[in-house]
Design a protein around this nucleic acid. Structure first.
Length: 579
RNA sequence: GCCCCCAUAGCUCAACGGAUAGAGCAUCAGCCUUCUAAGCUGGUAAUAGAGGUUCGAUUCCUCUUGGGGGUACCA
């Protein structure tokens, strides 16, 4: 329990003393007031009014009266209609926030809160080994990674899981095209990342198949050969998969993304079929005349669904059934979250319903984290038509843009700094762009306009952080000691605004997690950096001529930097000390 | 046809059913001999339409219009 939370709890207790008949676990609606002058925090009385059957205005004034009496904690309290606005005693308030943050700052790496025993699985990214990762994967991967970090930071154990789709008809398409037209090319001979080389043949297949439909049948034959273990086919598959997976792993490294556990579909695709066959014996599915196995979901408002084809092969949902069981066996998660775009909403409704029908009680812990698709101005991205933006390409392009921006401002930067900074700035701009949208929103990605280094962007946050580091470097004291803060010094309204917003950092993290929405954190960080820039512009930090004020303001900006760094860290973004 | 999601300023996005609907971009007017101007200050500008529920609706419900997705023995 942090000191910050204790403040709210004390307000709560005081209010409860005044109000009879309110359950002890009642959740109070604390929020920042809309206007700077109103106070540090406000309490909305609407839900209290419902519980007490009394008007919110009169409850608000009762609470305000009570808070006015308790003057060790509250400096000022006032009922404004149905709201109680109050200002904390400065010393207590700032102590609670700044000390808490500064103490953590001194031990930056070990912030992770003690874990509960519950364990979550977050499954995301899901690359296919027939093409490079594109912007759709990027959004997916960044969301999954950020959610994992939010869980951990909120004290929940979380496992990052990736399923590599390395078999199936789509894989055989690129294999067939390579067999026919590959000419023994390799990533080395072509000086090309393996995933990009494989992707070229996937696109080529689609072009050729338009003129020659029989290629599709050949690809199916290749899949059958693969399933039968045909040596040549397996060798080709291994060779091309190795190229593709190496390339994909390289992209993950560039993005700074890692996984705790990776499943390969080729290793697990049979488990789902076994489960379905057992369910068939129990009478939970039916066998069609041609031998296919089907489940009837019509009683649940969905269509009938084939689970095993007449030729005995399994479909997509069947493999997901198998994976679901496997994940349960391996981890017994309290929650298992699939991060998958909204185009598969129906697929997951079907999957979860089937798991329920099959009697898996753990199925209720499985969730689909749905998010909107990434589109280009020209429409949807389609790999096989080559109308995609690949992650590797966009990173290169953005690094070059970032270099230009750096040189524009600092022509004498050393080549090493130029390269290091441009990498981080480019990645920051890219990642933050994808994480500032509410997940449910579709993203229209316009390469010319979407990526910017100014305004509400990742680099804006980096810049605020670097400015703070620069001030701290120039400060006469090289270490902030929490015990030396003279709290009463921070009375400017810009300072108070910053402190109020630092106060809600933990709440923002909790809200981002429970709503599965990293954009709440992203938007909060922008707001905080904006407030810092206003403060920075208006008030001197180093040249105040007042030792105590200097120390207080250094403490304040250190705390702001700490929150920005931690927030960005959760979003999977590194910071820079100089820009 | 049926199902799901979305619609806020010229553009891209915010806003637990609550206080004066906020930002960024663009545009116009300003601010670098002062801790990094990737910044700051100010101006212009919005809830698609019609009903309903509520003390109160951008938010919830119904319909209309306009977008996107799904409805495979593809993944």
């Amino acid at each position: 329990m942090s000191d910050v939370n204790k403040l709210e709890d004390r307000i709560r207790d005081l209010a409860l003393e005044t109000l009879k008949d309110v359950p002890k676990d009642f959740i109070f609606d604390f929020d920042l007031p809309p206007n700077k002058e109103l106070g540090d925090l406000s309490l909305a009385c609407f839900s209290l009014a419902k519980t007490l059957k009394e008007s919110p205005d009169s409850i608000a004034s009762k609470i305000a009266e009570k808070l006015k009496v308790e003057n060790d904690l509250i400096e000022f309290a006032e009922a404004v209609g149905p709201y109680v606005n109050f200002r904390f005693n400065s010393e207590i308030f700032i102590n609670a926030i700044l000390k808490e943050i500064l103490e953590k700052e001194q031990d930056f790496g070990s912030l992770k809160i003690k874990s509960k025993s519950d364990k979550y699985i977050i499954e995301f990214s899901a690359p296919n080994t027939n093409k490079p990762l594109h912007l759709g994967h990027l959004r997916n991967t960044l969301l999954g990674n950020a959610m994992n970090n939010l869980f951990i930071r909120n004290g929940v154990k979380s496992i990052k899981l990736n399923l590599i789709n390395d078999r199936g008809i789509h894989i055989c398409k690129s294999m067939l095209a390579y067999q026919k037209w590959g000419d023994n090319k390799t990533p080395e001979t072509e000086n090309k990342k393996g995933d990009h080389l494989v992707g070229d043949y996937y696109v080529l297949f689609d072009q050729k198949a338009k003129e020659n439909p029989s290629l599709m049948r050949e690809a199916q034959e290749l899949l059958q050969k693969w399933e039968q273990g045909d040596q040549d086919t397996i060798h080709l598959w291994q060779k091309m998969n190795h190229w593709a997976i190496s390339g994909i792993e390289e992209t993950y490294r560039r993005l700074n993304i890692s996984f705790d556990k990776v499943y390969y579909e080729s290793e697990i695709y049979k488990t789902g079929k076994d489960i379905v066959l057992k369910a068939l014996k129990k009478g939970l599915c039916e066998k069609l005349p041609d031998g296919a196995v089907q489940i009837n979901l019509e009683p649940y408002g969905m269509d009938k669904k084939i689970l095993i084809r007449a030729d005995g092969t399994s479909v997509y949902v069947t493999q997901d059934i198998g994976l679901a069981k496997l994940k349960y066996n391996d981890f017994k998660p309290a929650k298992s979250i699939h991060v998958v775009a909204s185009e598969q909403d129906y697929h997951f409704r079907v999957l979860f319903k089937i798991l329920e029908i099959f009697g898996f009680s753990w199925a209720k812990n499985y969730e689909h984290f749905s998010y909107g698709m990434v589109n280009l101005p020209s429409g949807n991205m389609k790999s096989r038509e080559g109308t995609v933006i690949e992650i590797d390409d966009i990173i290169v392009e953005m690094e070059s843009l970032a270099k230009g921006e750096i040189l524009k401002r600092n022509p004498n930067v050393s080549p090493i700094d130029l390269s290091g900074r441009s990498k981080i700035i480019a990645l920051t701009a890219l990642k933050f762009f994808f994480l500032k949208f509410t997940p449910a929103q579709e993203i229209k990605f316009n390469p010319e306009e979407s990526i910017s280094f100014e305004g509400a962007t990742g680099p804006y946050l980096l810049y605020a952080y670097a400015r703070i580091q620069s001030v701290i470097r120039k400060a006469p004291v090289n270490r902030i000691d929490p015990k030396d803060i003279n709290l009463a010094n921070l009375q400017e309204k810009e300072e108070r605004e910053l402190i109020k917003n630092l106060f809600i950092f933990q709440k923002i993290l909790a809200k981002s997690m429970t709503e599965y929405n990293p954009a709440i954190l992203s938007n909060y960080l922008i707001r905080l950096a904006q407030l810092f820039n206003v403060f920075y512009h208006k008030h001197q930090i180093l040249e105040t001529g007042n030792e105590k004020l200097l120390n207080s303001r250094l403490s304040l900006i250190t705390a702001v930097a700490w929150v920005i760094k931690n927030g960005l860290d959760i979003l999977g973004i590194e910071t820079l000390n100089e820009m």
